[in-house]
Write a protein that binds this DNA or RNA. Structure first.
Length: 312
RNA sequence: GCCAAGGUGGCGGAGCGGACAAUCGCACCAGACUGUAAAUCUGGCGGUCGAAAGGCCUACCUAGGUUCGAAUCCUAGCCUUGGCA
């Protein structure tokens, strides 16, 4: 591979980690120091009107800092990685063109993976008719269908995915699409150099900051935000409403739960989510981890970024 | 005080003589993950030995009893809830 002049190298800084570890704050600091622009890698901040619960730290963000990825679609719209890829491609190209450093910040592991490594099958569209037809099939039946269409893919599925209807349906969708169509060449631009920064804390501390943030969002009027969304026509079945901090209010608004009960459930789900995020990120050995309880962690991050980005 | 219903694993709740360390849900632990990813899904979950098959121990309020065998039946006690006083 030819050595590119520094300016031409498409660099990308990734800041990931479980929820509530201060990824955005750190990113805002680095934006100033490294002339960067932030891209949110978050599957929920894309929704308009979902502000408090998804943690769009609006007041914290100075006018000078650019943050991409908020409010991409309306609250009733569907969204998925493929749309995210299209969006990120455009934004990244723009930032690189300006000679600035894109900083991809978020807790949605799949979205980060999509930008950094790409998802080859992402362009294959959803087939709503097929999905409707397969809706009530058992996982055994789905697996059988897949095996007939694409035995290789079927054999490569792990025990968990073999019982996951959503994954099976998508696999069938892909298999069917391939049988009936030609694959167009899709040009996806990937970064040349990526630095992964991971933010984490010992579990006890992590749970504590999550609890504090839950309380903060409550104070900021999350319940009112949910109420307004419902009034504006958003329903509990909408994809956006499956977000943490939103779906948990259903029982409350339907009079089946008290506010403290709903809050407790929400907090528990947040903590479970953090665990799931860690299960994902732990596997990626490219990540350099920093413990946010270390007082000097941000200086260490800065030093590392400097060395990587070649600035002295 | 009387009557009724009931006391099962961290919680809820099945089981109501053998196949029960006890269905299931929740919580918890671990994990998967290439178009819903804050989604969806999988495994584990009394203790102990074992790689596994499996073995052993302690368990269904307490104490006795019936039985080849009891979480399941009987007796007494303790406790909880509802009704009557």
């Amino acid at each position: 591979m030819p050595v590119l002049p520094a300016k031409k190298i498409k660099s990308l800084l990734v800041i990931c980690g479980p929820t509530a570890t201060g990824k955005t704050s750190l990113a805002l600091k680095l934006v100033r120091k490294f002339n960067g622009e932030i891209i949110s890698a978050d599957s929920r901040q894309i929704y308009k009107g979902f502000d408090i619960g998804t943690g769009k730290d609006l007041p914290q963000i100075p006018k000078s800092a650019k943050v991409w990825g908020y409010d991409l679609v309306g609250s009733k719209e569907e969204f998925s990685v493929s749309k995210y890829i299209a969006f990120a491609q455009k934004v990244l190209a723009g930032i690189w063109l300006k000679g600035k450093l894109p900083i991809l910040v978020g807790g949605t592991g799949l979205y980060i993976k999509a930008v950094v490594d790409g998802i080859p099958t992402a362009f294959i569209p959803k087939n709503f008719e097929l999905r409707e037809n397969l809706k009530d099939k058992s996982t055994d039946e789905l697996f059988e269908s897949l095996a007939q269409l694409d035995s290789v893919r079927a054999a490569s599925m792990n025990a968990s995915d073999k019982k996951n209807p959503r994954r099976l349906v998508r696999a069938i969708e892909i298999a069917q699409w391939r049988l009936s169509g030609v694959e167009p060449k899709r040009k996806v631009v990937k970064p040349d150099s990526v630095l992964f920064i991971g933010l984490n804390a010992p579990r006890e501390k992590l749970f504590k900051v999550i609890r504090e943030r839950v309380e903060k969002r409550l104070r900021e009027g999350l319940v009112g935000e949910v109420k307004n969304l419902l009034k504006s026509g958003v329903s509990w079945e909408d994809q956006a409403m499956t977000s943490l901090g939103y779906r948990q209010w259903r029982g409350y608004f339907e009079g089946k739960e008290t506010l403290p009960e709903a809050t407790k459930n929400w907090l528990r789900e947040e903590q479970k989510y953090a665990k799931r995020q860690m299960a994902w990120f732990k596997r990626d050995k490219r990540i350099t981890w920093f413990d946010i309880t270390d007082k000097a962690f941000d200086e260490k991050v800065e030093k590392l970024v400097k060395r990587w980005y070649n600035i002295r």
